[in-house]
Design a protein around this nucleic acid. Structure first.
Lengths: 152, 152
DNA sequence: TTTTTAGTTCTGCAATAAGAGAACTAAAAA
DNA sequence: TTTTTAGTTCTCTTATTGCAGAACTAAAAA
């Protein structure tokens, strides 16, 4: 049993939850992740989470496993204690940014392929499409540079 | 009535459609946008789109209006012709990048707010959270810089 | 005035997502 | 050995999405 959340914390969990829903998480996953970002105790058990968010066991289990798969959270165990202690994987956002940049490659390949297969008649349209693929290449390279330059 | 699509074009529309679905568009919207990127004719009417993609009128109407709202497409009319001619708004991608960067501000404000309200006891966690908000500030500023530097 | 055009809106259905609650399971404790 | 713990999995319900098809509408054409 965990320390109860303050009203302010509940508010923040709700706000952060909504934002993360808009970024693709299910309501329950979004709130679990928010809870692990906002609660005073950094490591919470299954039941801490269930009670704090008033979720069913299935919703809690699915949300946790979803976040584990996404590597948004991790867990550790303590000697002589069967429970898992879940925590937000905050330190891993740089990799996430990097991944999203590298993810652009496939998208841009597709755009280049579209351009290659386009009729040569639509000169202006093709020029715009070319500029877009150039821009994405540029943006990707520069972004990776600035990420690498961070605190170095 | 428009020129029929080649098999290659159908393939590309499907691939691009799937990618855009994963970026939040509905199946129909994703395909309409893909069609307007891939078809030889750059400007297509409602019925061109409906026939090319074999959609119902309602699906076509909703997809088009959805894309118009998102400013992913635009339309023009021709003198003495009541139809609207829809086209992909390719040239406006930089603005979209810019918008998504500016959109980070709200997210980061929320994170800063969370940090401000956290217990001071979780020293390492708070330090990580602080580093994240610093990074987002940095990344946002640098990204805007590189976007502005594009072809200038 | 009637008909056609270029859509929009409404109705209904099928598929999917999200979560509650209960049944289940495997390991540890009693 | 039985019970408890720490979850997982299954079943059911409800809500939402996405679309087809039909009914509708407003402007233009005939």
């Amino acid at each position: 049993m965990e320390k109860k959340l303050t009203d302010k914390q509940r508010d923040l969990i709700e706000s952060f939850g909504v934002v993360q829903e808009s970024m693709g998480l299910s309501p329950a996953s979004a709130r679990v992740n928010a809870l692990l970002t906002i609660a005073d105790t950094v490591e919470l058990t299954f039941d801490d989470i269930r009670e704090a968010l008033e979720l069913s066991k299935s919703a809690t289990s699915n949300a946790i496993n979803n976040l584990l798969m996404l590597k948004r959270i991790g867990y550790k165990t303590k000697p002589g204690d069967r429970k898992r202690y879940f925590y937000s994987k905050m330190g891993q956002w740089q990799d996430a940014f990097m991944d999203s940049m590298n993810g652009l490659t496939g998208y841009n390949e597709l755009l280049k392929n579209i351009l290659k297969n386009r009729t040569k008649d639509s000169i202006e349209f093709n020029a715009q499409l070319k500029e877009l693929t150039d821009f994405i290449d540029y943006y990707q390279k520069e972004s990776i540079k600035i990420i690498k330059n961070w605190k170095k």
